[in-house]
Design a protein around this nucleic acid. Structure first.
Lengths: 230, 230
DNA sequence: ATGAAAGATTAATCAAAGGTTAAAGCCTAG
DNA sequence: CTAGGCTTTAACCTTTGATTAATCTTTCAT
């Protein structure tokens, strides 16, 4: 089983250290940062499966961090792990989109089973791959990497296929640069972005035989596969 | 939003009644049964989105119920809601496939947000809950930066979109210069104010196809998006 | 009424982002 | 170990859009 990648945001040095080591021992890949600002930076650059936020931290607290994530349209599951046990805080946490709110002091073993439970739910809902997609006059089979129009077939490469699938899953909605890159490339930097452009060019060429289909760029935001038909 | 269907398995009559009524008030559809046997029967007959199991019950306890479910390959998400607070019980609960383990006494409000959170993760597939604003004859999707009237679509830039969203949130109320500038630009000076004017001009042009919409200036105060319709 | 400040509009500017093509690396099967 | 296909990097060109500027028009206090 692939390691799950966790981002731990915790300003308390000793707790942060203990948790990081424990979770690593339990076969998680953990990045520990000590404040919300650093968290935002790495979230834009690297993919994670789940984030764990402390609330009370200097500079940017956990709530502010969650607000920032929502505002920036970063799609990442997160939960709060906090000493703040008041109900009002819990309600606020969930209303910000947290998938859990765990009160300190936490038993490490309990934390691990809760993390695994949440991660397995998240994974289950993410995996749903259909057999055949219709794109205007084209049809696309992600499992064979095959793009067909009329009788013409074209075999896409793995990357081309993944990218097209990603765009299709968000058909007529923005697929954000950062989300694409984090999902397909695993990181988001200058070179990946360039690479992404190259593959977008490929897909546009392959799909050029049906004018009702286009891949638009939304400046500084992402790409959007538009099918005007249907 | 469609009602979620819950199955509550709880032998305590007064708690069962209170919970059922409370959850119904919170727009859940609830079936309450008092033992594991009845639970199994209705699970085979009716669909549910989520089940809530007490543990300590006569005849068949919650753990046995969960074991039965696994053995019969019934795929249904369930969680435990129990007075048994020992870690060993929690670990057993998760190992049986529970998606949460909530210790009594439970605050009803907290229970509801936890249920909603879990259900929204589970239903992530049809979680296409993109917000859409109506502005007279226009509709605006902030996540796609898309402004639509009839069949015409226009993609706004990030700034245009943010500004329109800000005005919409204060629809028919004044959006102050200083508030807009501080929120979107992060500072408020001569040049930003000039920039803001330019974007207001853009939005006015984009929205000019419906006379019932206008963006008025309140001298020295701010702007106000007015929709006379509705 | 009048002048200064504020607002509206259009256009110019320029750095950043995107597009395209080709060459360079990198795997992997044979 | 090498040939061929795929991905990444590079080079170069085009487009985009926030800002600034320039020029009118409106508002408001006096």
């Amino acid at each position: 089983m692939a390691k799950y990648r966790l981002l731990l945001v915790e300003d308390d040095t000793s707790l942060g250290y203990v948790l990081t080591e424990y979770l690593k021992m339990k076969n998680f890949s953990v990045l520990w940062v000590k404040n919300g600002k650093d968290a935002l930076t790495v979230l834009l650059e690297q993919p994670f499966d789940l984030c764990i936020f402390d609330i009370m931290m200097p500079d940017m607290d956990g709530f502010q961090l969650a607000e920032n994530i929502n505002q920036k349209n970063i799609t990442i599951p997160f939960l709060f792990l906090t000493a703040r046990s008041l109900k009002i805080d819990l309600l606020k946490g969930f209303s910000l989109g947290a998938i859990d709110y765990i009160r300190k002091p936490i038993d490490e073993e309990e934390l691990v089973v809760r993390l695994n439970s949440l991660l397995s739910i998240l994974k289950k809902t993410d995996q749903k791959e259909e057999e055949l997609y219709k794109i205007g006059k084209y049809s696309f089979s992600p499992s064979n990497y095959e793009l067909k129009i009329y009788d013409e077939k074209r075999h896409l490469t793995a990357r081309e296929s993944e990218l097209l699938l990603y765009l299709l899953k968000n058909k007529n909605n923005i697929s954000r640069h950062s989300d694409i890159l984090n999902t397909l490339w695993g990181k988001n930097d200058y070179f990946n972005r360039k690479s992404l452009n190259v593959f977008i060019t490929h897909l546009r060429k392959y799909l050029s035989k049906d004018d009702s289909i286009k891949i638009d760029n939304i400046h500084n935001q992402g790409f959007i596969l538009i099918t005007s038909s249907e």
